Computed example of a mutant assay.
Amino acid sequence: MIQVDCLFSTAPRKVVQMRLSLPEGSLVKDALASLYQSPEWLSYLAALKHPPEMPSKQGIWGRMVTSHQVLKDGDRLEIYRALQVDPKLARKQRFKRQGKGRTGLFARRRVGAVAGY
């Protein structure tokens, strides 16, 4: 038997972690099937108002893998959720909200300071 940690983020800064015991030679799709049938996962989903949809992307230790990847003992299987907002758009909106006078190169400088420092 191998031990695999499964991690899933339901919302920003919220991570659910579950440890699975799987037979040797298990694939990622086997781990996902085992996870979705576990009583811990089902009770977790029942507590949510908006249960997450089935993931389409997963990775092991931060690297994208297919569902046919063989798992090893001690792997960390990460289940990725879809982005809610485009990062470029979020940055533009944040910059617009904060205004250009208080950020980056336009921030306040000390009296007599040289520009760029």
Score class of each variant (00 low, 15 high):
residue 5 D to Q: 12
residue 6 C to M: 03
residue 6 C to L: 14
residue 7 L to V: 09
residue 8 F to A: 09
residue 9 S to G: 09
residue 10 T to A: 09
residue 11 A to Q: 14
residue 13 R to G: 04
residue 17 Q to V: 13
residue 22 L to H: 11
residue 27 L to Y: 10
residue 30 D to L: 13
residue 32 L to M: 10
residue 33 A to M: 08
residue 34 S to T: 04
residue 34 S to P: 02
residue 35 L to Y: 07
residue 36 Y to P: 03
residue 36 Y to W: 09
residue 38 S to A: 10
residue 38 S to P: 07
residue 40 E to T: 15
residue 41 W to G: 00
residue 46 A to N: 12
residue 47 A to L: 05
residue 50 H to L: 05
residue 52 P to C: 02
residue 53 E to M: 07
residue 59 G to R: 02
residue 61 W to K: 12
residue 65 V to F: 00
residue 65 V to D: 04
residue 66 T to R: 07
residue 67 S to F: 04
residue 70 V to D: 04
residue 72 K to F: 01
residue 73 D to N: 11
residue 75 D to W: 04
residue 80 Y to R: 05
residue 81 R to P: 00
residue 81 R to M: 07
residue 82 A to I: 14
residue 82 A to Q: 09
residue 85 V to E: 04
residue 86 D to P: 01
residue 87 P to C: 06
residue 87 P to T: 03
residue 89 L to R: 02
residue 90 A to V: 06
residue 91 R to H: 06
residue 92 K to G: 11
residue 92 K to I: 13
residue 92 K to E: 15
residue 93 Q to L: 11
residue 93 Q to P: 00
residue 98 Q to G: 01
residue 100 K to D: 14
residue 108 R to D: 07
residue 108 R to Q: 07
residue 108 R to I: 01
residue 110 R to Q: 12
residue 111 V to C: 06
residue 114 V to G: 00
residue 114 V to A: 08
residue 116 G to E: 06
